[in-house]
Design a protein around this nucleic acid. Structure first.
Lengths: 193, 193, 193, 193
DNA sequence: AATGAATGAGGATTCATTCAT
DNA sequence: CATGAATGAATCCTCATTCAT
């Protein structure tokens, strides 16, 4: 107990040797840096500074920058996927599922463009490197499976693609798009079966 | 003037003195390098090597790497846009326009993934830097205008987004996608008005 | 104390607590690494991996990399020296001693070039650092003493040098050398007294 | 002429952009550093400092540290070889050739141990990497060819090996060896034919 | 007009070593 | 006693850019 007090009093000094969250913190910082400066700007130095860890710490926790990137994007894709699934699971019928899809699209923008930027960086890697393709493939499969709780497989695929396309265009559009368009898009895909 | 004469005397062998091709050649090489190694890998050295021009030539023809990138992506977006417009202009009615849209999507894959990779790289830049946003905005506007020759504005927007989304998903999908799916997607967007 | 009892109870399975093999195992691994990657490539990490011991173990058993290197080369020189002495002791007269010398030279190649590589690495250190010179000096003295069982001191010195030179040249030569050459070399040195 | 004076007056400033000797200077510095600190210690930084050139200059003039090492050792081997040939060419008969060989061995020590250290470093590389083997092989061939001007091939080979071995042992020996030993060695090899 | 030479900043990574546990 | 975690220094190399020619 006394030790605990002493430790807190000493601030972060005693935590120096054993910092179990550090790996996680680096991954988070990595995603932050990528969101701000792109994969190209995600250097050991910059990520280390963002995470508040010494430079040498980077290659201790991750075999190389590639491993770090891979883990960061894995966590990103998993997080987004989980959020998506959660929303779909919360929907009770096709009607509320449609509303959930609209919410997903609209909220991405609310999240800042952070998630979208990260998604783009991932896509860019994935179109070039098969290793990252596994990530996007799994992501797409989870999304489709989640959508299939409420829609037939073909509709689920098309809806997933529509979400993708409309999210991108909304992000690239300078004037704020109105909600009605999104609603209409979802309607067209899901009603025409 | 004397110079011009001298040049003509030399037979204007290939315009070497004022080599206008060289600038173009560098831009082409730049796009090639980006397609293969990403914006991150597009260095002066590598592009110069790909273009077969001396290193010093790079900063002579382009103020910096940014200027080169900007011009390269401008040419890329313009080329793609033009091809899109052309196809739409060639369509005589909504029916053939739909077929043209399907062709566009399916052909992207035929083109290798080169165009898609480049598009992603551009999007990635655009989500972060307003300068590149102008490029993507203009591109989108041209696409929509072209689509509006055959569809109402709202449908045009949604169709454009659908093209985007389905192209991406087809590129990231490992198993070769069915053509019927694309046809269906276009139908759903354009028929439900 | 209790621990000691426990250990004995465990049957002193292999002396794990005070693992004397571990030190030896590290030294062996160190020589292996040097043979393969040179002194320059002999890092704590690599040696630890080769020995199958944890990294922290290295600086626990050896004050620093220098101490480890010194011990490794000491063992190497001692081993080679002993083998040399043994062979010489086994010879009964000058004639069989000559045969033994030939065998030593020819066998080096059989041993792979491992010993020769290690010898070179040691020489390289020795020409620069007096600490390692002691090792090579002792080695040379043992060799000469062993040769002096059968030859006069001067012949012993020259023979020792000849062994050295011919071993090196045989190792660096690409075409497999003739045994007759080695025999001739030994003859010339030992017969001309 | 005026320019030359001006240039010298300006010190090293005007030579900054065009320094044709720079490559050579780096190679020389590289050999110096290797002689002093070994191949292991021959880093870009250290060599650059020794040559008085900026760090970035290193990889401009040499594709990598390997290329630099290779060129440095090539120059070293060539230089030594040439000196050897020269001495042999200067000898008029077997008797003076024998004297020349003795001089070569004894003088190596006079040269400081520099050449010998460098030779060892090269051997060490050569025993491990075939690329450097070509260097040592060529060197050996030149030496033997030079010796064959005065001795039969077999004697030349053995003499070359003897030079090698005795040079090494003399360098590793702490007490200054006397000249008589060297003379005797040469005699034994060359007289017993 | 065009370019080869040059360079400082920053890239990823490896390293020997320290130390809390 | 033994070790996993941690780190700053130093490694090689690539880069965009400048500039004398």
């Amino acid at each position: 107990m006394t030790d605990d007090i002493a430790e807190h009093a000493a601030g972060s000094r005693s935590g120096r040797r054993n910092d179990p969250e550090r790996r996680e913190r680096i991954i988070s910082a990595c995603l932050d840096v990528i969101a701000e400066s792109g994969v190209a700007g995600a250097s050991h130095r910059r990520i280390a500074a963002a995470a508040g860890v010494p430079l040498g710490s980077m290659t201790y926790h991750f075999a190389g920058i590639d491993e770090l990137l891979r883990e960061a994007f894995t966590r990103f894709a998993t997080t987004i996927s989980a959020r998506f699934e959660e929303r779909m699971a919360a929907a009770s019928d096709a009607e509320s599922a449609r509303a959930a899809v609209v919410a997903i699209i609209v909220e991405d923008v609310a999240h800042g463009t952070r998630d979208l930027v990260l998604a783009h960086e991932l896509y860019t890697l994935a179109t070039r490197e098969p290793g990252y393709r596994a990530l996007t493939t799994a992501w797409m499969q989870r999304s489709r499976a989640a959508l299939e709780r409420h829609f037939d497989p073909q509709t689920a695929r098309l809806l997933d693609a529509m979400i993708e396309g409309i999210s991108i265009h909304r992000a690239l559009d300078d004037d704020p798009r109105d909600l009605a368009e999104v609603v209409d898009a979802v309607e067209r895909i899901t009603r025409s079966a």
